[in-house]
Design a protein around this nucleic acid. Structure first.
Lengths: 251, 251
DNA sequence: CGAATGCTTGATATGGTTCAAATCCCGTGG
DNA sequence: CCACGGGATTTGAACCATATCAAGCATTCG
């Protein structure tokens, strides 16, 4: 895990926040000028160990990160996936004692931001506090969907839902959903869907034979988006927190 | 759904908040004086319908409330349970478009608090904003545990975990965990654990025959707390957000 | 080129579901 | 106080979606 100091590169974070919340120029500047520390993490290394108390949050700049829960018998369950632009543990600002581990699925570049700094701007600018809170609530909405997915859907439907979600989160435009890079092994997919890697393999085969998606290594090719959506009963509404709604008191 | 206006009774909410966050007397007063509207909801009625946009949050005063996700084939999955003292949808302050329904499992008394009022005190008192955020993050931690529970544990273990969680949340003192009132039908338990009501019944039978817990109607009697904890791999840490830690900048 | 890691497939086992029916429980009205 | 009705619980039998075990193949990387 190599480190180096730097100032900014928080652009992707700002962009993410502004999809969901309005910021004034001043607020934007406050975020941009947060001091950060760049950290590289190799695949399968923890960014945050289980039970560790951290004093910083991790903005993913490049790579893919998972939050892992574990069973006594060593079975792992991914409870969240974080892609570039996500502040993977923004919640730790307010609850610094981790209850699960954060692990890199691929080599990952992270910007560490100190809790104290985040808390300071949240206290100074109520709109930033609200934006952080809102961002965390989108993650919670995803979590809630995962409970439904894992609790009540069969294997094919689960995979379809996960693929729709990741496609939607990665995509900037509609077309991008049909072809994207998903750097997860079949074991990772199994850990995210609560299945076995063997069964993930068979499920992907079935989806391929249905002509819906083809996954080759990290490359996902969606042939029939509509069928994938209907298989996974996917409704992207939960991923949004529309900034355009007048939720914010402009006082 | 009967309504009546009232002022305060927010004591249980204050108490809940203060377990996790420090408040000054002034901040406490700001919360106590929030205008509320008392609402009674009968069992199996929605407090918030699927997709409904609300302008208030619901503090549970009496009863039990579940958040329900649903599958196309009508299978239901409970993604959260809320007991008295919980502000069931505090998150809606920041994301008012519901992505799942809130339904009463028993006759429930609710205090409705307007988003605008909550947002106003959150903006005025950064410590309150932080406390609200923290409260939501405890709910998210529970959600995260549920994903692990439903994704990777077998039926007996799932039930044990759920029972430990509810016991811990209901209990004020240690002894109270051994005997408590859980107003859920076996179908509700099934919806919360991602099982079938038939299998819940068999699982409860097995737990009873093991001499671990006996559930008769709404009455839960825990005979061997330690075995229940170890069966469910339960670690109460995730339920806490220790207010005693100096997380708050006292500036 | 060899070792490690990930992918694929077959055979078998099993935990949980589904369907169906009986019984229990409790509130309600006669 | 009893009869009735409807939800909730309990149990059995058959079935199936997914797990488990095991082996061979493919790909990447040092």
């Amino acid at each position: 895990m190599s480190q180096s100091s730097s100032s900014s590169n928080l652009g992707s974070f700002i962009k993410r926040i502004e999809v969901r919340s309005h910021l004034t120029e001043q607020e934007r500047q406050a975020i941009v000028h947060l001091p950060v520390r760049v950290v590289q993490v190799k695949a399968n290394r923890d960014l945050v160990r289980l039970g560790e108390r951290v004093n910083h949050a991790c903005l993913i700049v490049y790579g893919l990160v998972g939050r892992f829960g574990e069973t006594k018998e060593g079975q792992r369950q991914i409870t969240a996936l974080h892609i570039p632009g996500d502040m993977a543990d923004l919640h730790s600002v307010v609850r610094p004692v981790g209850t699960s581990a954060l692990q890199a699925l691929t080599t990952t570049t992270v910007l560490r931001v100190l809790h104290d700094d985040l808390r300071a701007i949240a206290r100074q600018y109520p709109a930033i506090a609200e934006a952080f809170w809102r961002d965390c609530m989108v993650d919670a909405a995803i979590l809630s969907q995962w409970v439904v997915n894992v609790g009540r859907r069969d294997a094919k439907s689960r995979m379809a839902h996960l693929l729709c979600e990741m496609a939607s989160r990665y995509a900037n435009d509609e077309g991008a959903k049909l072809s994207f890079d998903l750097p997860m092994t079949q074991q990772h997919l199994a850990d995210a869907t609560g299945l076995t890697s063997v069964h993930v393999n068979r499920t992907l085969k079935a989806l391929r034979e249905d002509g819906v998606v083809t996954i080759t290594g990290r490359d996902v090719q969606v042939h029939q988006w509509d069928r994938l959506v209907s298989l996974g009963e996917f409704d992207a509404a939960y991923l949004q927190a529309d900034a355009r709604q007048p939720e914010r008191l402009l006082n």
